[in-house]
């Protein structure tokens, strides 16, 4: 067996061990990019072969956080794809205003850039006071960072233009307190979000939601897992609720293709069918 094929087998065994020992099942993640992330983990750990990490995975509880940090969905930016945020601001938030309470779920939130972007927008549109935002991830280290809401000052500065392009009414720096090259998100924004551990592969729906914002998470999943996750979103959403996916994600050929209607095709915003218009 040549080395590359052997490595594929080792990756498979590693994922098997991770699922059976710790209950984190990456076996239905899209393989090509996952392989790269497992190889990246091996490099960070300084091991020669992927299989060298298996004993540690089984015996050493302390190893798990670093495995999850390497394998889970990566960090985003604030207001990534500003046109999508602008579309949400103009096309979805006014519709959400008709509800007395608004509940929003952002799965795969990593270090919190996306939920904070949304919370800032809700604040500017006068909706934050009646909104409950749930931001979830499987990576507890990322969640802890998200909850802190502290980012390098230069990354916040770099997102200022995207914030304005997304229809921002102030300056992004107005929402941060900056000192020693770090910027901390405003407390009112921070406290509007509940960061919680949730695993899309294994866990169920935990609340009724009006909007699910899940961008660039499904691309990491194989079709079967995409279907499960979309069905979960469908189950959690109220009738007529909204789903926003990543710019290159779609419902075509999934099990949920007919359960949603496109509201804004270009920006991948869908409305759960079956409710009143």
């Amino acid at each position: 067996m040549i080395r590359d094929d052997l490595q594929d087998l080792e990756i498979q065994l590693f994922l098997e061990a991770l699922a059976l020992r710790h209950g984190y099942d990456f076996r239905r993640y899209a393989k090509a990019s996952l392989k790269r992330r497992v190889r990246g983990l091996a490099e960070t750990e300084g091991v020669r072969e992927i299989s060298d990490m298996i004993p540690r995975l089984l015996q050493d509880e302390g190893f798990l956080p670093s495995v999850l940090s390497h394998l889970s969905v990566p960090v985003s930016e604030m207001f990534r794809d500003p046109a999508v945020f602008l579309a949400l601001r103009r096309g979805v938030l006014p519709l959400l205003d008709s509800y007395p309470r608004i509940s929003i779920w952002l799965p795969g939130c990593a270090t919190g850039e996306e939920p904070y972007s949304l919370a800032i927008m809700l604040q500017e549109e006068g909706l934050l006071h009646k909104a409950q935002i749930y931001a979830t991830d499987i990576n507890d280290a990322a969640l802890a960072k998200a909850e802190e809401g502290i980012y390098p000052e230069k990354t916040v500065t770099a997102m200022a233009a995207a914030y304005l392009a997304a229809g921002g009414r102030k300056s992004l720096s107005d929402y941060f307190h900056t000192a020693y090259n770090f910027s901390k998100i405003d407390d009112q924004i921070r406290k509007s979000i509940v960061f919680a551990h949730h695993n899309l592969v294994a866990d169920g729906v935990f609340c009724e939601t009006h909007l699910v914002l899940c961008r660039n998470v499904l691309i990491y999943f194989e079709r079967q897992l995409q279907n499960r996750v979309l069905e979960l979103f469908h189950e959690g959403l109220v009738r007529g609720g909204y789903l926003c996916l990543g710019n290159r994600e779609s419902l075509s050929f999934t099990s949920c293709e007919n359960l949603f209607r496109p509201l804004d095709r270009k920006h991948r915003i869908f409305k759960k069918a079956g409710g009143l218009a």
């Binding site: 899209a30 393989k31 090509a32 990019s33 790269r36 985003s76 660039n216 691309i219 990491y220």
Partner: peptide, 13 residues
């Protein structure tokens, strides 16, 4: 990226 079955996948890694 190209998966083993010859389909494409995308990542923001």
């Amino acid at each position: 990226l190209v998966e083993a079955d010859g389909t494409f996948s995308l990542s923001l890694d």
